[in-house]
Design a protein around this nucleic acid. Structure first.
Lengths: 342, 342
DNA sequence: CTGAAAGCGCTTACAG
DNA sequence: CTGAAAGCGCTTACAG
């Protein structure tokens, strides 16, 4: 404690736990316990400690805390892309509930790529997060092993994946694809095409739902699928519309795997003077911004990505605190939004 | 080093620097120096250390590093909103250059609110970031003080703000607003309205540019500005178009402060059967996804937000390494993109 | 160019 | 319910 000038010091000038302890007249460990809300500290002391901490403007050092406790206040969130509104919404909602709970979010962008996901996982795990939120249930064995091996609580989002065990929050992509197709069938369409870009697992699941609906309607032989490996965009939607018209001209309805494709196709139809839904019905997925403004407004499936983010963050918070979580799998559903394009 | 059972141990099972040192047959400090690329280590030892680190799968502990060095590998990025493509693009670009350089990004969302920015700044500063990227130059005195007081390198993005000192990467919002207005004047328009939402500083600067252009053309008395405090959206664009038509029916061109407003207005015009650009020219700002797909395609200003993110990250990296940065202010410019809507 | 010692600011594990 | 000691895994500052 002697501040003699001969002492080797690296003090950072920060207010530390020791300062608060001195101010409150207790030991540092009592300050630590009081501030973390551990019971087993006399209420009177807690008050004194908190007053001292406030008076000194004490802010705990996350690095010291992480080093000593072997766990940080970081949560890693892995999403495929930042250019997709769906994942940004998810992320935004996650932040909204995690930040007030005292956590910081580390973002990992996987670009829909298994190898990238592994690399991101490795780099993010080095930061010793306290928990993980990952998109989807489909990943490489190595990525799987990294997650399991970390021993960290992990919540998967966007699909259901109850059979994978663990914890998840999402909705049935397959069922949503089926429901939208059913809506098209119900409105009298019989030649329905499924148009997809960016063939990630969820897009494929929606396609399964589409095929299931057709099969159930006895139209299994009418399946028409057109897809592109390119990332989803409005321009691509227009191009894929042209392809459908060329390859399957009798098509009377198109189910686009994402709203941006459908929006692009809608505008392309407008340019071509093609009547929607008269000649061709169009529907999208996700209810993105602008879909309700299209001409005509776009029928789509509203997906609860914000709610998924919120619930996943709450679930993860509970897991990180060692609290029991039940049920471990949350199905938040979806909603077919009928607008004038179908 | 004795692993006797009586010893109190909290070992985490991680591979540590000491393990690598033992494997390489050198002291821990030499490993530390070799791995950080400090010169003053014999090349032969560096090779041996790196081999040992790879063999053991050593991953440095960021918490220990941060605690010992009083600086973390975190960079805090403050943006107004995650629902605005412009900032997400910026963030994405920042991540793309910062992550490979070994940094982690902490995101702070300020919601265009001074008090929120302060709170976010405080919380993010507690994590001892090594540097800061903040949006714009306009902030509360308290926020300013927090940044200065932290002593951290900080790069401002999106506008120029050279007179504020420090470092910045962006473009002149005012000049961009002026240039777009000039384009409308050049195409013969004389009754040009400026329509804005979400009145943040950059929107106001664009408005200044608009007024400057009109003034220069001797049309200072023709200034028509319509704005809403609501967040920018396509639906709002349609509503604001209606307001302009009601309040200033002779208007022959509209400059929208953001493309989503313009897109919404374009579609509203389509529904109304109003000829664009015949009856009314429309232009936006930012060249957002879909603007090139509109009917007609939207004239706008392409803004270099990705490039801003990349350059800002590089500038900050240099600052964090104590390298000199010159020039301290980067003007990345903008481009008026002429399409059929004007 | 290399290393032994001390310390960063917390929490864990053990005692009382 | 409270505390003295040790330790988390690194880097700094000092020596040689």
């Amino acid at each position: 404690m002697a501040g003699s000038s001969g002492r080797r010091t690296r003090a950072t000038g920060r207010v530390t736990l020791a300062d608060v302890a001195r101010e409150a007249g207790v030991s540092p460990i009592t300050v630590s316990r009081a501030l973390r809300g551990e019971r087993a500290v006399a209420p009177e002391l807690v008050a004194r400690v908190q007053a001292a901490a406030t008076a000194l403007g004490y802010v705990p050092d996350p690095a010291a805390r992480a080093l000593a406790s072997a766990r940080s206040a970081n949560v890693a969130v892995l999403i495929p892309k930042l250019s997709n509104t769906v994942f940004v919404d998810l992320l935004d909602a996650v932040q909204h509930t995690l930040v007030p709970a005292g956590y910081q979010t580390l973002i990992g962008v996987t670009h829909y790529d298994a190898a990238t996901e592994e690399a991101v996982l490795r780099s993010v795990l080095a930061h010793r997060p306290a928990g993980l939120i990952v998109t989807g249930s489909d990943r490489s064995a190595a990525a799987h092993a990294l997650i399991r091996g970390s021993g960290l609580p992990c919540v998967r989002v966007m699909d259901l994946g109850a059979d994978e065990g663990g914890h998840s929050v999402g909705f049935s992509q397959r069922e949503a694809g089926r429901a939208l197709t059913q809506h098209l069938l119900d409105s009298g369409r019989r030649r329905i095409a499924y148009v997809a870009a960016q063939l990630d697992p969820r897009t494929l699941e929606r396609g399964e739902g589409y095929r299931a609906a057709l099969a159930q309607a006895g139209l299994a032989d009418r399946v028409v699928q057109v897809s592109s490996p390119e990332p989803s965009s409005m321009a691509l939607g227009g191009a894929l519309l042209a392809r459908v018209l060329r390859e399957a001209p009798e098509t009377d309805a198109i189910f686009f795997c994402n709203d941006d494709l459908a929006q692009g196709a809608l505008l392309a139809a407008l340019r071509l003077g093609m009547a929607v839904p008269g000649r061709l019905a169009m529907a999208g997925f996700n209810d993105l911004p602008g879909s309700d403004q299209m001409v005509p407004p776009l029928t789509t499936v509203a997906t609860p990505r914000r709610e998924i983010g919120t619930q996943a963050a709450q679930m993860l918070t509970a897991l990180m605190r060692g609290q029991p979580v039940d049920p471990p799998h949350l199905d938040l559903g979806f909603e077919v939004v009928r607008r004038a394009s179908t």
